[in-house]
């Protein structure tokens, strides 16, 4: 998975979102150790301090925890990961509905379209 950082939004926020994305999609597995701050920063081509800030934020929310000497780990709390997955999905859906509304589709038209698309995909 590629890191895509743009310069218009605070970089640490984009890092938080993308690390969350990697956790819910299983690239970083529950209970697994995260790479070091510097390695992650180099991988994403960002400042190590910014990466540090993103990780500190994730620690605060509990998705990541640190062991004194051995580094940072992904939470073992599956419920929490599921929760964030759902949150992300809901926010995607909200964005999608907003866009569709702008295009002139109401709720029912959207649902009808999704069902049709689902059928043709299968």
């Amino acid at each position: 998975m590629k890191w895509t950082i743009n310069s218009e939004r605070p970089v640490y926020r984009q890092l938080i979102e993308q690390i969350e994305g990697r956790i819910i999609s299983g690239i970083y597995k529950s209970g697994e150790k995260l790479p070091s701050v510097r390695d992650l920063a180099t991988e994403a081509s960002v400042n190590p301090n910014t990466m540090q800030r993103a990780l500190a934020n994730l620690e605060q929310s509990g998705l990541v925890y640190s062991k004194r000497t051995s580094g940072r780990f992904i939470t073992e709390d599956q419920k929490m990961i599921e929760g964030i997955k759902k949150e992300m999905a809901l926010s995607e859906i909200k964005n999608f509905i907003e866009k569709m509304n702008k295009m002139g589709f109401d709720r029912q038209a959207i649902i009808a379209l999704i069902q049709k698309e689902g059928v043709t995909n299968e």
Binding site: S7, S45, V46, N47
Partner: peptide, 9 residues
Amino acid sequence: IADVEKILD
């Protein structure tokens, strides 16, 4: 600036 701003504090 556009090239370096991602790595700056």
